[in-house]
Design a protein around this nucleic acid. Structure first.
Lengths: 207, 207
DNA sequence: TAGATTGTTAATCGATTAACAATC
DNA sequence: TAGATTGTTAATCGATTAACAATC
């Protein structure tokens, strides 16, 4: 139904649509969305056509209806329980990141291996040892985990999460966590890699 | 010479090669790199072939030599001066992120619009008002900026950075900053979008 | 030499884009 | 009706992969 490329653009459409909705817009055209996201208008129509005929020719798309359809189809109408593993600088910032809860992600547990951190508070939550991951995943029906541990710990943490029944991992550790045989989905975000991508793209554009 | 897709994988190759180098490995094969990054071995050879014939048939690639070639070609043998604009939770975490300096990125200035923050310290640097961006970009030859301001400020900040002569922006604000007509390169990283991509991919895999 | 692995071509696959009939 | 914009097809473009000769 939807290609991987289309799926990965859906959160962007959703974000723009929600912004338009907040700004009081009731309709939007493919060209407008395309411009805001730096895409081609054909691409936007093609991406959205997967939902069926939602637009009105000559008029555009209904902002509210489109938001609801995307959310319904892709599961962001409900909330997801999330845990955070690794409470360093980045982990702390991620735990307080407003954008997550705004999209229906509920942080229900935070974990670290450092005995000095265990038992202390992070926001409203108490930092717990990794050994308690299984229990919480069971009791709270946790599906997603954010991993911000050091590189050398990431693979074993990912394995533990998988064993605990986590179905999705957002990995910020500077290693590619990919388990080809497993059913756990992983999205890797390496901040240093992103900055280097920028630098490389700048170099290339200067040629 | 290099496709965009290849360029965006280069930081990943570099990261794995540096890890192998630290671990004392002197040689590596395309299949090994592929496995670590979840890629196809043909793809790795094709990506690396852009540098010329660096491998030895029957043997593999020289780890150290490959690192140096990538760095030389793509400008990560030198250091880049970087500024940070927006000192919230995320900005603070980014300013202390070890991965940046390890790859030759030097944070030379931090800026915020909040008078309450201006003049206070962030690590070794003093937070300054946005008005001083131009001066610092000139005096320190700054090429890259990390933007972690609220969504509504991001576009005007990006514009200011562009005017100041910044050539690359790593944008963490939840808006797509793209200036089609400008020569400034932008890489957008929206953390909420990444988490949602994960959730959508999980939904899709469950179908 | 035999085995391994690269470099590179050609085939495949998937994603983007242009174009336009359908229709609001 | 005239103008605008969708939905969808067909064409294009680019990226991935399989395969294998070259060669260490």
């Amino acid at each position: 139904m939807f290609s991987d490329a289309t799926i990965s653009r859906m959160p962007l459409y959703l974000r723009e649509l929600q912004q338009l909705h907040r700004a009081g817009q009731t309709r939007v055209q493919s060209g407008v969305l395309a411009k805001r996201l730096g895409l081609n208008d054909s691409q936007v129509r093609r991406d959205l056509s997967g939902f069926g005929s939602l637009g009105q020719r000559g008029v555009g798309y209904d902002v509210k209806g489109l938001i609801q359809t995307i959310q319904n189809t892709l599961g962001s109408d409900r909330s997801w329980n999330v845990i955070l593993v690794g409470v360093g600088n980045l982990g702390r910032a991620l735990s307080g990141y407003r954008g997550f809860e705004q999209q229906g992600f509920r942080l229900v547990g935070v974990f670290d291996s450092d005995p000095g951190k265990i038992g202390t508070k992070l926001g409203l939550l108490t930092i717990r040892p990794l050994e308690e991951i299984d229990d919480l995943v069971q009791s709270e029906d946790v599906e997603l985990a954010i991993v911000s541990v050091p590189a050398n710990a990431a693979v074993s943490v990912a394995h533990r999460l998988e064993m605990a029944g986590i179905t999705g991992i957002l990995n910020f550790a500077p290693v590619t966590v990919s388990k080809p045989q497993s059913s756990t989905t992983v999205v890797n975000v390496d901040l240093a890699v992103e900055l280097q991508r920028l630098a490389f793209a700048v170099m290339k554009s200067k040629e």
